[in-house]
Amino acid sequence: MTTPEWLTRPETRFGPCTCCGRRSKGDLVEKTLAGSSRLIRSAMFSADMAARDGFLQRTDARVKVVATVALLLVVALVHHVAVVIGLYAAVLVLGVVSRIPCRFLLTRVWCFVPLFTGVVVLPAAFSFVTPGHVVVPLGTWFGTPVGLTSQGLTTAALVVTRVATSISLVVLVTITTPWPRLLAALRALFVPRAFVVVLALAYRYLFDLLNTVTDMYEARKARAPRDHDVARSRAFVAATAGATFGKAHALSEEVYLAMVARGYAGQATAIDRGRIACADVYVFAAAVTIVVAAMGVDHVLH
């Protein structure tokens, strides 16, 4: 092995290793790295929350899943904003008794619901989209008064509160339930076994693939500064996506062999532990009460 001559002298063409004040931001490499680390952090946060000793953490996952679906249905079925807000308050209380920081639940929802749902739904408040009784007139259009309608405002409020409540509920339940327990609950309830097995495997290897992607992007970052050429950047993203597929396929083959080596013959089984405790029955009863109460109040307001 002979070392080429250029490798033995220092490279001088790149200029000094000092700052010039120009910053590059919004790079796709940075964004993907940030997204991936956010995901892993959020998974770790969930694991921490699930390990706390709180009300929902003590509740059986099967009860939680059934109650969550029932509550989501109620949130979707009631017609009055007040009832939805009441249910939202109940979710926050559940969070507090489960020792989930209230700030987390609030920021998790209100940082992005107004941004996405709010902006999307806002035009619906106007008479152009939702005709009806104009409560905030904003002038006339060919003789008809236009502005915010009561129907429009109601529907916008209804959608925003519904979205916020549903997301809070799902987030609350998922972060108080360890993922394996949630899987066991799905298996125990109505979800086909094959689907749950695939779900479990997919979730487990998701982090492996994310690590692969992170490594590739970090290597890219370490090698060269941001590339402003869109076509070249796109080719890089496509190459990493293609290479990740190669890794995913090789891994699936290896995992299959590892499963077969330990007796897997196409029928997936898993250990099911835990039985419904007395407390879980009370929780379930409480959930049913909330469901019935919300529906009742909604009916009375009608």
């Binding site: 094959a194 097995v197 695939v198 779900l199 479990a200 495997l201 997919a202 979730y203 290897y205 998701l206 492996d208 693939l209 995913a248 396929h249 891994l251 699936s252 083959e253 995992v255 299959y256 499963m259 997936a268």
Partner: peptide, 9 residues
């Protein structure tokens, strides 16, 4: 199971 799971991941 492994093939589809990795495809999902």
């Amino acid at each position: 199971a492994p093939l589809v799971a990795l495809a999902a991941a």
